[in-house]
Simulated assay, not measured.
Amino acid sequence: MRIATSQMYSQSVSLMSQLTASADKTQTQIATTKLGVTAASDAASYVKLQQIQRATTGDATYKSNITVAQGVLAQTDQTLDSVQTQLQRALELATRAANDTLSDSDRASIGEELSSIRDTLYGLANTKDDIRGQPLFGGATGDTAYVTNADGSISFAGAGEPSGIPVADGETVQPTISGQRVFSTADADMFAIIGNLADALKAGGNVKAAAGTALDGINTSLDQVTLARASIGARGARLDIEADRLTKVAETREETRSGIEDTDIPTAVANLQKTLTVLQATQASFTKLTSVSLFDYLK
């Protein structure tokens, strides 16, 4: 009889310990809203969560890169818009300069304004991005995109194409454009074009030929800037698509993670209540059992 009673005690104590541990675990899951998946508790789910975490970290880097690229592209486009404005004014002045009725004084005045435009374009060509502090139009290397030479001419000081920014696995986007594709190509060096006309106007005399050459060159420069802005716009659209893709992937990934790791609160609360009910009943039975005396067994 003592053996049977001892077994009953052991079973009751073991059951209460299991129920208490289960209740504690469920309460923790409710409090933390997490199931507490570990390699020991659920190896397959644990591996999946680690994969999700790595992918999330990688995509966070890409999202940050996209934000940087979008910011630099926007500044590049804004700067090119200012370049267009200056070139359009230069085109107006070149058209006026071709007018035979202007006096030398008028032409000299136009020449001064063209020189000012050239200086403004030089400043725009050396704009640095607000995010990284790098030259917008400097190419792959160099702290300055354009320099003024000893003879007063302006030349490109960078080298190569701008470095790409990683925005996805195996995908990069150039956030800006080389100045050689905007300000000074083989076909049109806008600094020289505007500078030569300005010098001719200041010198006086017949500048019709110089104005005609300048008009052709400025129009070519405007075409280059238009193409550059189109390229920048296409890259921006590509970044928008990639950003949307990452957002959708993140939403799907979060749903998967939540299904594996997050606590279903209503279900957990219901299970906790059941566990506590069974525990209370077991405790009541154990209390009754321990109060049974030897005389009760002899009856």
Score class of each variant (00 low, 15 high):
residue 137 F to E: 13
residue 268 A to M: 05
residue 39 A to P: 06
residue 247 T to I: 01
residue 66 I to E: 08
residue 208 K to R: 13
residue 129 D to W: 01
residue 109 S to E: 08
residue 41 S to V: 00
residue 166 P to K: 10
residue 65 N to K: 09
residue 187 D to M: 08
residue 258 S to N: 14
residue 262 D to T: 11
residue 149 N to F: 04
residue 212 G to E: 07
residue 5 T to R: 14
residue 255 E to L: 14
residue 37 V to W: 13
residue 5 T to V: 10
residue 171 E to W: 02
residue 1 M to D: 07
residue 252 T to D: 14
residue 231 S to W: 06
residue 247 T to Y: 05
residue 260 I to W: 11
residue 262 D to L: 11
residue 299 K to P: 01
residue 158 G to Q: 03
residue 273 Q to L: 08
residue 172 T to K: 00
residue 8 M to V: 15
residue 104 D to L: 04
residue 224 Q to R: 09
residue 145 A to G: 07
residue 127 T to F: 04
residue 183 F to T: 12
residue 217 G to E: 00
residue 126 N to S: 05
residue 103 S to K: 09
residue 49 L to V: 11
residue 149 N to D: 12
residue 45 S to C: 06
residue 5 T to P: 08
residue 267 T to E: 10
residue 81 D to E: 06
residue 76 T to V: 08
residue 53 Q to Y: 02
residue 43 A to I: 07
residue 287 T to I: 11
residue 162 P to H: 05
residue 105 S to I: 05
residue 63 K to W: 03
residue 150 A to I: 10
residue 259 G to R: 05
residue 200 A to H: 04
residue 177 I to R: 13
residue 145 A to S: 07
residue 138 G to C: 04
residue 180 Q to V: 09
residue 20 T to L: 09
residue 209 A to R: 04
residue 90 A to T: 03
residue 134 Q to G: 01
residue 166 P to T: 06
residue 20 T to C: 09
residue 118 R to M: 12
residue 96 R to H: 10
residue 243 A to Y: 11
residue 132 R to Y: 04
residue 51 Q to A: 07
residue 45 S to H: 02
residue 7 Q to A: 09
residue 29 Q to R: 13
residue 151 D to C: 06
residue 164 G to T: 02
residue 285 S to F: 13
residue 126 N to A: 07
residue 62 Y to G: 00
residue 244 D to S: 02
residue 163 S to R: 08
residue 140 A to W: 00
residue 189 D to R: 09
residue 179 G to A: 00
residue 1 M to W: 06
residue 101 T to M: 00
residue 165 I to H: 06
residue 168 A to V: 00
residue 281 A to V: 09
residue 166 P to A: 01
residue 194 I to G: 02
residue 79 T to S: 09
residue 295 F to K: 11
residue 59 D to L: 05
residue 1 M to F: 04
residue 251 E to L: 12
residue 122 Y to Q: 05
residue 59 D to E: 14
residue 210 A to L: 07
residue 208 K to W: 00
residue 155 S to N: 10
residue 168 A to L: 04
residue 194 I to E: 01
residue 181 R to L: 15
residue 61 T to Y: 00
residue 85 T to H: 02
residue 35 L to H: 01
residue 289 L to N: 01
residue 274 K to H: 09
residue 213 T to C: 06
residue 294 L to Y: 14
residue 68 V to Y: 02
residue 92 E to A: 12
residue 4 A to N: 11
residue 280 Q to V: 01
residue 153 S to W: 07
residue 156 F to E: 10
residue 206 N to F: 00
residue 71 G to K: 01
residue 220 T to D: 10
residue 208 K to Y: 01
residue 273 Q to D: 06
residue 196 N to A: 15
residue 264 D to M: 08
residue 15 L to S: 11
residue 246 L to F: 04
residue 41 S to N: 05
residue 282 T to F: 07
residue 36 G to M: 10
residue 92 E to S: 13
residue 77 D to W: 04
residue 121 L to I: 10
residue 63 K to A: 13
residue 130 D to N: 08
residue 175 P to N: 00
residue 63 K to M: 07
residue 208 K to M: 03
residue 270 A to T: 15
residue 59 D to I: 03
residue 226 T to A: 15
residue 144 T to V: 14
residue 143 D to R: 07
residue 26 T to H: 05
residue 199 D to K: 13
residue 159 A to D: 12
residue 141 T to D: 04
residue 167 V to I: 12
residue 107 R to C: 04
